[in-house]
Amino acid sequence: MAKLISILDNDFYKFTMQYAVVKLFPKAKARYQFINRGKHEFPEGFAAKLTESIQALSKLKLTKEEKIFFAESCPYMDPTYFDFLQGYRYDPEEVKIEQTGCELSVKIEGYWYRTILWEVPIMSLICEIYYEMTGLQRVADEEVMHIVESKMDKYDKLDITIADFGTRRRHSFDVHDLVIKTLINHPSKTFIGTSNLFLAMKYNTKQIGTHAHEWFMFHAAKYGYKMANLLGLENWADVYLGDLGIALSDTYTTEAFFKQFNKKLTKLFDGVRHDSGDAIEFAQKTINHYLSLGINPLSKSIIFSDGLDYDKVEKISNYCKGKIGYSFGIGTDFTNDVGLPRMNIVLKMTEALPENGEWTPVIKLSDEPMKHTGDSKEIEMAKRYLHIDD
């Protein structure tokens, strides 16, 4: 049975957001839903297997060793949070799973500070169980290691830094673990860390991450679309005081983001993360934004993280070199390059209930229109409100 062996086997930004939610929005609630972008057909009995694995998550708890590691590596987080996390348990009652034929439905509902941790583990379990149940055989461990080493040999020549962002759609925990082990042992300084907190602890490497789209999606539900980016960043800065300073830019398109990324925030945040749309266009828009405010782009960074492979990384690196700082977060091209089709799935917040508010649909307006998520009528209304043309 596919399972997680640690409560820290999750993306770091889930914990950083949870900490901020506990501090600022402890009474807020959220709903999430699975989206099968790749139209994958799930075998009979899949829902039962997934339910069994999710039930097992309720037994996970933060160990003493994990608590010490987490607290020592994140001094900007209060000790009370680590005590809270030590008492946190996944509640499977928050997750509803159904299967009709080959179609899978997964819905999550509960207090946001609790449900925020579900997305990444459920997605990784869906992937692992899918490969198990369909009987698709991956390449051997030696070949996985060879593939990673070959990629790193090429990346080393670009004189760049890269991190692993591949937890959500990895082939399996075993493959992910093997990939990080190989990256750690590779003789260069190109690899700088992983988004997976458990593997960062296991291999004594840096945990990478700040916040995700849902942070801004909730702010839109609470404050409206025109204030979502501004107040999302202001609240983040109030919690972290300049630490974890990479801002996600494309929840409501980059154009809308830069309109609210004012001089104070632009100076405070270390850089931005690119997650959709044309990377070169984004890089130039970002450079222009810094220059327009009298800020040297080389003092800031862009973290590129949108479906990267070597060719994309090389192209982006060649363009950005000497113009702006840059680094790369590589996902499934590391953790699911095992000779099998990769899964194209997401699990997104669909509604939010701010304190003293009401259930409100939430959406994402990606720089890539095909990656818009949420209710179609809400999407059209938001585009009109923000003056966005696809």
Rank of each mutant, 00 (worst) to 15 (best):
A2E: 13
L4A: 04
I5S: 10
D9H: 03
Y13C: 12
K14H: 13
T16Y: 08
M17Q: 08
A20H: 04
V21C: 10
F25P: 00
K27H: 12
R31M: 14
I35P: 00
I35D: 10
G38H: 06
K39L: 14
G45P: 13
A48E: 15
I54V: 15
Q55S: 14
L60Y: 11
K67T: 12
F70T: 01
S73W: 06
M77W: 04
P79Q: 10
L85Y: 13
Q86I: 00
G87P: 06
G87D: 14
G87I: 07
Y88C: 06
E94Q: 12
E94R: 01
K96D: 10
E98I: 06
E103S: 09
L104K: 00
L104G: 03
I108D: 06
G110I: 06
T115G: 05
E119Q: 11
V120K: 03
V120Y: 05
P121Q: 04
L125E: 02
M133K: 02
R138W: 11
R138M: 12
V139D: 08
A140S: 13
E142Y: 14
E143N: 07
V144R: 01
M145D: 09
H146K: 13
I147M: 09
E149I: 11
K151P: 01
D153R: 13
K154H: 08
Y155F: 15
L158P: 10
T161S: 14
A163V: 02
D164C: 10
F165N: 00
H171N: 11
V175Q: 02
H176G: 05
L178C: 09
K181L: 10
K181E: 15
N185C: 09
T194F: 13
S195T: 13
L197V: 07
F198V: 01
L199A: 07
L199K: 00
A200D: 09
T205H: 08
T205G: 03
G209P: 09
E214Q: 13
F216P: 00
M217N: 03
G224C: 07
A228V: 05
G232E: 09
G232V: 10
N235E: 14
Y240P: 06
A247F: 09
S249G: 06
T251Y: 03
Y252E: 02
A256N: 11
K263Q: 11
K264H: 11
L265Q: 08
R273Y: 09
D275R: 00
A279I: 02
A279Q: 01
I280E: 02
K285N: 12
K285P: 04
T286A: 15
N288D: 15
G294F: 11
G294Y: 12
L298W: 02
S301V: 13
D306M: 03
D311A: 14
K315G: 01
C320D: 04
G322Y: 13
G322K: 10
F328A: 01
I330V: 12
G331L: 07
G331M: 04
T332I: 01
F334G: 00
N344M: 12
I345A: 02
V346M: 07
E351K: 09
E355W: 11
N356Y: 15
N356K: 14
G357K: 02
G357N: 08
K364P: 02
M370G: 05
E378W: 09
I379V: 10
K383A: 08
